[in-house]
């Protein structure tokens, strides 16, 4: 049975707590509060080739460090991150431009187990900034499209201007990927769906008993989406979700990201649904 694959030992330097200097190659504003950075190791720093689903710890010197999921892989050793400006560190990251230096640790955590789901229908369910960790899954499927059956991306956001990667949707569709997009609120200028992301499931073309699902977004959204998919017949062990918690050390020492018996930084962030289902309903966690 598929399970998320761990890669915590991938730290090439053997010093997982020591950030190395990387350089911003490109910065692009996606939405008013979301920026995509392409970064690469500075001269003398070790390259770290993460896998989709994993995260790096990005350190803005003098301000702090945050975990950011991989949103893509660039040329050679470059890594792409899409960052939402929600706090002091992410705000500082969103101000960086080409040539700026930041500290990088990782990659850490588990990856999306896409290689275990070859031959299946793939359902990708994303909410808000949760599209970022799933973008490399779409890219990987496009690069190996014949290995998968029906593929559908269900993507929801609060409003149209908050949607990410809209300029890539045409190429996804051209690769025979069904792309269904919805927003919670919109005016008449918007010609797509309006409603929560779970409403897209009924428009998605996939065989539940042949499908695997990859979900990332607000926990409530993931919970309802997972429940709906399982209710429709998707094997719960094939529903994978990426959890977001307050990762600090990223190697399972500090416990900041602990969720019941799980260290999200070490055992996750990608988990199969049966390991999260009960925990996501525990108020005290």
């Amino acid at each position: 049975m598929a399970s998320a694959t761990s890669n915590v030992g991938n730290d090439a330097s053997g010093e997982p707590l020591l950030p190395e200097p990387w350089t911003v190659l490109r910065a692009a504003r996606e939405t008013p509060d979301v920026v995509t950075l392409e970064i690469a190791p500075s001269a003398g720093s070790e390259p770290r080739r993460p896998r989709p689903g994993q995260f790096l710890m990005l350190y803005v010197f003098g301000i702090g460090e945050v975990p950011i999921s991989v949103a893509g892989l660039g040329d050679r050793d470059a890594v792409v991150h899409t960052i939402r400006d929600v706090g002091a560190v992410t705000h500082a990251l969103c101000q960086l431009g080409p040539g700026d230096t930041l500290g990088v640790r990782g990659p850490f955590g588990t990856a999306w187990p896409l290689e275990h789901e070859r031959g299946r229908d793939i359902v990708i369910g994303a909410g808000g900034i949760g599209m970022a960790p799933l973008r490399p899954v779409v890219t990987a499927i496009m690069a190996d499209r014949a290995s998968f059956d029906d593929v559908v991306v269900m993507y929801g956001a609060r409003e149209p201007r908050e949607l990410l990667y809209t300029d890539e949707f045409a190429s996804w569709r051209a690769a025979d990927i069904q792309v269904e997009v919805t927003v919670d609120h919109a005016d008449h200028a918007w010609d797509g769906h309006i409603g929560v992301v779970t409403t897209l499931i009924r428009y998605a073309d996939f065989q539940p008993n042949e499908a695997a699902a990859f979900l990332c977004g607000p926990e409530i959204m993931m919970r309802f989406t997972a429940q709906e998919l399982v209710q429709r017949g998707v094997d719960p062990r094939r529903v994978h979700l990426s959890m977001e918690r307050n990762m600090k050390c990223a190697v399972g020492f500090c416990g900041h990201c602990q969720l019941g018996p799980e260290f999200v930084c070490l055992d996750g962030p990608v988990f199969p649904w049966p390991r999260m289902e009960r925990l996501m309903a525990v108020h005290e966690l």
Partner: peptide, 11 residues
């Protein structure tokens, strides 16, 4: 249920 989710403004 959908309306409740929409009201939560989870994003």
């Amino acid at each position: 249920a959908d309306t409740r989710l929409q009201l939560l403004d989870v994003y």
